[in-house]
Design a protein around this nucleic acid. Structure first.
Lengths: 214, 214
DNA sequence: TTGACAAAAAATGTATACATTTTAAATTAG
DNA sequence: CTAATTTAAAATGTATACATTTTTTGTCAA
């Protein structure tokens, strides 16, 4: 299983670093040669990247590296807003103190390691959110949220400026946690909505500016 | 592309007809022999059925035919409630008369062919819903809704009694359409919520009764 | 009998080879 | 020169073969 996972990571990273810029068409053969694996492996990886939003179909042959659009970012934000507060609300009832503690630890770890790569910081931030939602005990919902995050993370990798939002983010994360500890689900939900909205708006604005500049 | 699509349909149907009952573990080799294709094809199809909810992972080898649970049905219903009204609301603004007409035609077709197979009736009903949501112009949202329907349809295929709900369903569909024509998005949304809730409750009750009976 | 361990069987991962489809290029008729 | 058609190239689908992993079976010692 290593070759597959390995190629998955490497190709994803290469796309993120724009080694294959948006619009590039990647064929099975090409990738197989390039990365020194058989087409079978490439097929599987392409399929995985397809459902994670890192590739998109291109006619009947090849897959294309997708671009970025403010509209898509907005849509992803909308979906987060629709699903994450729900997950939080459902989870709040069943949340254990050990989970709250885990989340606290995670925040501490992020705060302590100021020099984390933006990408890793983003992943850890999501793990925090994920922890809060975990105890909603709705497998499908959690799967959807993971998928959504995948897609959003593609944008965050592209617009690293959006990750500079990290400071505000950390403060809000901490507040979210304290509200949950206190059992104030209502306020926590509202804060979460604001939190997601802010991050979304920043991202969308950056993208609009950039699109306008062309 | 035919072999793949063919096996996909056939295997899905066989699962629905309980030719492979819930809990059965299906290996690549087994399926390859059984259906007379190579393992490569089976792999692809298994993967597709996995993401559509018709198979689930089983340790490190084989895939398992999933069972049914009231809890899962409830969750799927919840997700529909969270996403479909949103799609309808967004779509209502951009909906064209030709689309409303298409939807009307579809209802007529369903009403006219009383003897449609339950499965086909279900698919057509979904196409109706889908038409109403189409003009929301949110690709990700629409994709999620399609996925959700896939999962729900597995339950409907199992609990055909839930499809007997079809009569009420048809009436509500017609009313939904007339509300949209009149531009009353608000009421249409509320009706949709009731519509989804009713169908969900019926399904969940059937499943609970059945689970209790064991 | 039970449980750990080793050997065999089975299942999946991966590579290569061939078949079919799709795309691109080249050729020719208008 | 353009456009349509044919031909060659390239890409994907599928099958088979081999490698690796996982599961099962069987054996033996406690």
């Amino acid at each position: 299983m290593l070759k597959k996972q390995q190629l998955y990571n490497q190709l994803k990273q290469h796309i993120q670093l724009q080694h294959w810029p948006a619009g590039t068409v990647l064929t099975q053969q090409q990738l197989a040669e390039q990365y020194g694996v058989s087409r079978i492996v490439v097929r599987d990886v392409q399929q995985a990247l397809l459902s994670d939003g890192w590739l998109e179909p291109h006619g009947k042959a090849g897959m294309q590296v997708p671009g970025f659009s403010a509209a898509e970012a907005q849509e992803l934000c909308l979906l987060r807003l629709q699903l994450e507060p729900l997950a939080l609300q459902l989870a709040a009832a069943n949340m254990s103190f050990s989970q709250l503690g885990q989340a606290e630890d995670l925040l501490g770890y992020i705060a302590a390691n100021k020099s984390l790569a933006p990408y890793q910081r983003g992943e850890l931030n999501w793990q925090f959110h994920r922890l809060l939602y975990q105890s909603c005990a709705k497998p499908h919902l959690l799967r959807l949220l993971d998928q959504l995050h995948q897609q959003v993370s593609r944008y965050l990798g592209y617009q690293e400026e959006a990750l500079a939002y990290a400071d505000t983010s950390a403060a809000e994360h901490a507040e979210l946690l304290s509200l949950l500890r206190r059992g104030d689900t209502e306020l926590a939900g509202k804060l979460l909505v604001r939190h997601i909205t802010e991050a979304g708006n920043l991202l969308v604005q950056l993208l609009q500016k950039q699109q306008g500049a062309r």
